[in-house]
Write a protein that binds this DNA or RNA. Structure first.
Lengths: 177, 177
DNA sequence: ACCCTCATGTAACATGTTACATGATTCG
DNA sequence: CGAATCATGTAACATGTTACATGAGGGT
């Protein structure tokens, strides 16, 4: 069982969903710490059904369109719980092309490098705006237990972006001098 | 050509290296923003030689041991320069199992969750110590041009870790209340 | 009618990981 | 002389991406 399988298991455990729903969840809310493409999700769902960790109910949407609404089985809950209690792997090292290029920055003039920093800054600021809007939807004095994870993760993502933006600004000033 | 190919190209351009050297570089200095396993590096080196972007010289180590010291070709330099000028892809979304589990935190008791946070904190602090030692080896008033990227990246990694640690501490306090 | 979203699936390909396989060199 | 490091390569497998393929539902 790979991590994606557990991610899907956890999401189905939270709420009954279709494969299509999962696709959206992976590209929206969960995107900051996990991702998966549509094709991967559907194949993984099949495997999870074969392993009897999830099951589905066919629901008719409109006149004829059949959709599969997945739910977790008892066996699935057990597997999920076991995985949740596993030790964490070593700190994950992300792959970041921007940083990789910065490592090879001798290749560029400082004008070109500044341009890259400015573009990166814009992207970070845009994302920060989106996250901040989401964050403001929470009433911080009253977070339901089920939402604590979401809330803390969003807080973390915002803190991370702010630091990133600060670093980009400082670096930009540094290379301009 | 994939990103790994350009990463290797850039590293060889910085300095003549062997496959073994690259393996160490990927698990040490570059690990914070890119990684590659030994088997992948050797296969990629072969491809780059086939594409005439790098070439090698066989050097005898000791009595008989042959090692291949790679260097970049003119064509390789051109390819690298072209890649360096490409636009950056969208912000990279890292995969983080700790955060994924936090998203499913309802599965755990707050004691268990606190334990996870504490372990994560230790890992971050350990890494921060290592990075700080490295950082202190720089004379910040005199960074040679060739090292600016390294210096800024290390600074960024430290800033990121500090924010991470702060977030972990705050979150820990939050779930303990 | 048209377009966007909802909905599911497969095939081919690219990338990454684990394991296997081998042997020399260096340092204590 | 033994252990850690230096050094190179392949095979099998796992994971992830891009592209193809199809069609219904809902709103304007």
């Amino acid at each position: 069982m790979n991590t994606l399988a557990y991610a899907i298991l956890g999401l189905i455990d939270k709420d009954k969903v279709t494969g299509y729903d999962l696709t959206k969840i992976f590209s929206d809310s969960v995107a900051d710490f996990w991702s998966a493409k549509q094709s991967q999700i559907y194949t993984e769902l099949k495997k999870l059904v074969d392993a009897a960790l999830i099951e589905y109910e066919v629901v008719i949407q409109g006149e004829v369109l059949e959709k599969k609404v997945y739910s977790i089985t008892t066996k699935g809950k057990e597997e999920l719980a076991a995985w949740m209690h596993e030790d964490e792997p070593p700190l994950s090292q992300s792959k970041d092309i921007f940083k990789l290029r910065l490592y090879f920055s001798e290749q560029l003039t400082s004008q070109e490098l500044c341009g890259k920093f400015e573009k990166q800054l814009e992207k970070c600021q845009l994302l920060l705006t989106r996250y901040t809007i989401k964050f403001n939807e929470y009433d911080s004095s009253d977070i339901p237990t089920a939402k604590i994870g979401d809330y803390l993760l969003l807080k973390g993502a915002i803190a991370h972006l702010r630091t990133q933006i600060e670093w980009l600004n400082e670096s930009l000033a540094y290379i301009q001098k």
